[in-house]
Write a protein that binds this DNA or RNA. Sequence first.
DNA 1: TATGAATGAGGATTCATTCAT
DNA 2: TATGAATGAATCCTCATTCAT
Lengths: 211, 211, 211, 211
Amino acid sequence: MATAERKAQSARVDATRNRERIIAAAREAFVEHGPTVPLDAIAHRAGVGNATLYRHFADRQELIHVVASYSMARITEQAEAALDEEPDAFEALRRFVHRAADERVGALCSLLFEGFDKNDPHVVDARLRLEAAVTRLMDNARESGELRPDVGLGDLMVAITQLTRPVAGTACAQVERFMHRHLQLFLDGLRAPARSELSGTAVTFEDFETT
Amino acid sequence: MATAERKAQSARVDATRNRERIIAAAREAFVEHGPTVPLDAIAHRAGVGNATLYRHFADRQELIHVVASYSMARITEQAEAALDEEPDAFEALRRFVHRAADERVGALCSLLFEGFDKNDPHVVDARLRLEAAVTRLMDNARESGELRPDVGLGDLMVAITQLTRPVAGTACAQVERFMHRHLQLFLDGLRAPARSELSGTAVTFEDFETT
Amino acid sequence: MATAERKAQSARVDATRNRERIIAAAREAFVEHGPTVPLDAIAHRAGVGNATLYRHFADRQELIHVVASYSMARITEQAEAALDEEPDAFEALRRFVHRAADERVGALCSLLFEGFDKNDPHVVDARLRLEAAVTRLMDNARESGELRPDVGLGDLMVAITQLTRPVAGTACAQVERFMHRHLQLFLDGLRAPARSELSGTAVTFEDFETT
Amino acid sequence: MATAERKAQSARVDATRNRERIIAAAREAFVEHGPTVPLDAIAHRAGVGNATLYRHFADRQELIHVVASYSMARITEQAEAALDEEPDAFEALRRFVHRAADERVGALCSLLFEGFDKNDPHVVDARLRLEAAVTRLMDNARESGELRPDVGLGDLMVAITQLTRPVAGTACAQVERFMHRHLQLFLDGLRAPARSELSGTAVTFEDFETT
DNA sequence: TATGAATGAGGATTCATTCAT
DNA sequence: TATGAATGAATCCTCATTCAT
């Protein structure tokens, strides 16, 4: 019986490894080539047959869903860690922004939104957690007087998303040279006192979500 | 014969009008649906047959090339107009940035780079003109002490590109609500005195071009 | 202009010929191999590329729809001709049954029902016409005392359908050797006076339709 | 060792049960969805893994073979029972026809023929037995003057097959409402005296087999 | 032996591009 | 020249069958 269990287990171990390889390959492929990269290419990169990919993920949607969920969870962890570990409020915000960038959230946010089931309870939960953490980061920084008051959660999230996306027509590595500089410049623009008046109104997370 | 000539003439006029319709349709379609939008869809939007599109543009590359060149020219004009008309150096820069955004340069820059023949003399010319104008805008602002000295031309161009791209999974109109706010925040971050130290080195236009 | 028109026309003539070739090929292929025959095979049999088939018919449904509609119209014509031309009531019915068989209605009825848009007005019309004609054929025969009274329209239609379907695993030609014999035996069973009592109730056209 | 033996035994018992479950599931699935139903679906319906199905049956052919053989044996039993138990000759024939229908022979005859190894000795035996029994049923009825003399064994078998097949595009249950009525009408047509002249010649079992 | 997983081949469909009128 | 139509290559996805545990 122990043998049988081990057998069952090891079959599962193999499959699990494949699953993770596929997710990793998909993540890279999505970051490099966008959300329409051929699934066969992902399968190939993962070193499995194309049908294996379909065994694990019914369709592109499902794969995107999983990859994006992973990313979102990692970002949320970064936000929570920054809250916990960083005494200075603006520094915590800054740290979160740069760490989120390292997660390639920009590249993956396209996935987060393209054909994401926004009513899936897991997704809703993940969003609420992320929203809560980043809201606290911003509230803290605003209260400490370091963050200009006329910016909202959505402003930050959109800017992170946009500034960390692969530069069009550019090899992937390239964007990493730039994005931290540009996020830093953006963060400098976020600092109080505001150096200009902004058009429109602060973008909230709802705006962001419902885009 | 006079009739034949007139016919030929009017045919040429028609052809020109078709060409421009196609370019306009392509511009809109690229902005709305990205650089992979079906060419048939562009032809349809332009109100011509698909083969007519191919008569004017050998392939997608060529169409992209032309559309992107148009855009680049318009942006260059904006930069030059800002130089000419705006006495305050930083204000000129600011004006250029927002006007470039209105040209949807972000959406179109994906085109600018995807399979662009960078050695085409016309392209080289256009680039040099754009580079010259924006360099002067930045130099002026730097000299007037309003622009932090640690940023380069490429920093600005990449940020404009990224912040004005359509937000992933978002209806096109949505991005216009955001982009001017975010560009403004970025501009605030560009102002002297610098509020932080930037990682890496200033991104030059060469970096930008060779990406 | 005459030339232009002829050109346009002849382009259309070509396309029309292709369309008809595809329909004919589809008809044969459906009869021989059933409704799941590969569309590529139909295209090949029609002597056109696979995409040409898709230009004419958006998907399998549409092709089936057209082929089945053709068939139904032909059968209806047969029913109406039998009504018009055959003085003897049962003979008219008999003639209709055998002619419908020659249309391979059995083979094609699978198509008539598999994924047929029953609410399409054209389909509704065609059905009503067919129903009306066959109802009159049966009413006439019942009134003349030649048709047993305990059978309905649906009984006849289902039996025609079933007895003219390709015999499973059989080359197509084979069924034609049998079907007229078996339809004739069935017709003999339909004659008054009834030689037995039937279970259930007469199958109406509604039963047939809503199956 | 006794334990090992018991294990082996129970393994064999399990295997036999699995085999039978698969056959039953296959029978249902074939009747409901036709001979191309995915084998995985059959395995799932049988509650076994797909590979278990392949352990028992090398491929679809073999499974079809077995299922069809089962069916044929049951029909043969029905024919023999009718011969033994029914004193009236035509009533015996009638009883056989309706019982064969209940075996869903129509649905399964598609299997009987599609890729059946007709030279397999078991198949030959089964056929000979079935042929003998039904021939006697028909001979008896012909001799008693109740069956028209111009019909052959194959006429009957084909008609049973066709009239009991699932009506195209119809839920399975539906056909059972019809088939007994239509078989009865057909049987009425078979009764002597013949009410019409049949085209062609009586279909023999050989015709049927070699189709 | 039984199983879940892996795989490749095949069919449906789309789209860039070419052809014929 | 402008056009509708034709085409083949590429992609998604399914399924029969094999493999490894």
